[in-house]
């Protein structure tokens, strides 16, 4: 699709294109510091990090799926299923429930992958179906009631900090680094770009497209499972309504981060910047005491503004 860039101008342009989200983030950071004196304090920034951890972790998996030209709408309902399973099996201890949660999330992701690869369904419709099925399972299991979680080990994950960095933020940072490494330094990641750029060409060059796609949906499921565990740890509750709308948040972070919905172009770093933009917006509006009703409205305007800004830098 993309023309081959030659020469220093093209290089600068492609750098700015990739940098667009970061430029927008930096500007937002400056504006936020000017608007509220509390914004740039370490406590508040760590708070922002904690708030963006869940969207960020899901965003990493979503980036990889979107890089192949696919999409995953089931991520939010995986968070719900994992949260109720963690609550239901808490008698077995933290390690067991975390393992169980991640396993079930991976299974849902693998079913998505199987539907896309073997069933040849459009990713949108396959994962939309699984979104309904998975949330349905969470409703059936929990009977529609919130389930309290009383696990000291899990609670520590949600509330404690290591080197004063909240554990959810740390988990996000580690997974982000792993994701970045996977996409740039490992054949698996490079193949995802190849599939997204031109699936048929990737197949003809010997990429096992089916296996790759299957793995990427399973991986996105697994990462959504991590987000589900973080949700359970932070909220100490498992409920079938958890994670409603997370799919749109994650997709917004990915697209704000400059990843093309048609696949083949983008990075997890951009997604992290996108997630940070969304989290900082929410944070700064809370700090300035803006009515929650007005926040949605402003968020919409600012997202359009951020995208236009990013575009003007990428020209």
């Amino acid at each position: 699709m993309a023309l081959i860039a030659v020469g220093p101008i093209a290089h600068a342009r492609s750098f700015l294109f990739r940098a667009g989200a970061f430029v927008a983030l930096a500007l937002l950071f400056v504006v936020a510091s000017l608007v509220s004196p509390t914004f740039a304090t370490p406590t508040n920034l760590l708070n922002v990090l904690r708030q963006m951890a869940i969207t960020g972790v899901i965003g990493i998996g979503m980036t990889m799926v979107i890089l192949t030209g696919g999409i995953d709408l089931s991520v939010g309902s995986i968070v719900a299923l994992v949260s109720v399973l963690v609550a239901g099996f808490q008698g077995h201890g933290t390690v067991v429930v975390v393992f169980l949660g991640l396993l079930s999330a991976t299974v849902v992701g693998a079913i998505n992958g199987a539907g896309v690869v073997i069933g040849r369904l459009q990713p949108f419709i396959m994962t939309l179906g699984m979104m309904t099925v998975t949330r349905g399972l969470a409703f059936m299991y929990s009977g529609g009631k919130p389930m309290e979680i009383l696990l000291p080990g899990l609670d520590a994950v949600g509330s404690r900090a290591i080197l004063s960095i909240p554990i959810p933020g740390l988990v996000f940072a580690v997974l982000l680094a792993l994701g970045g490494w996977l996409l740039t330094a490992v054949p698996f990641g490079r193949y995802l770009y190849a599939i997204g750029s031109h699936e048929e060409a990737a197949r003809l060059s010997g990429v096992n497209v089916g296996m790759q796609l299957f793995a990427v949906y399973a991986l996105c499921g697994l990462l959504s499972g991590v987000a589900g565990v973080l949700f359970a740890a932070q909220q100490s509750v498992g409920m079938a309504l958890a994670g409603t709308g997370y799919e749109l948040n994650a997709i917004a972070a990915v697209v704000l981060g400059g990843t093309s919905l048609f696949g083949g172009e983008g990075s997890v770093w951009g997604t992290a910047a996108g997630a940070a933009i969304i989290a900082i917006l929410g944070n700064i509006m809370n700090l300035s005491g803006i009515n929650p009703f007005t926040q949605d409205f402003l968020k919409g305007i600012i997202i359009v503004f951020a995208v236009v800004l990013q575009r003007s830098f990428s020209r």
């Binding site: 997709i251 409205f297 402003l298 968020k299 919409g300 359009v304 995208v307």
Partner: peptide
């Protein structure tokens, strides 16, 4: 602006 982002933003604005 990509349709997904533009209409997502409009979704927030409208409901807001």
């Amino acid at each position: 602006i990509s349709p997904l982002i533009m209409t997502l933003a409009m979704m927030y604005m409208g409901r807001g």
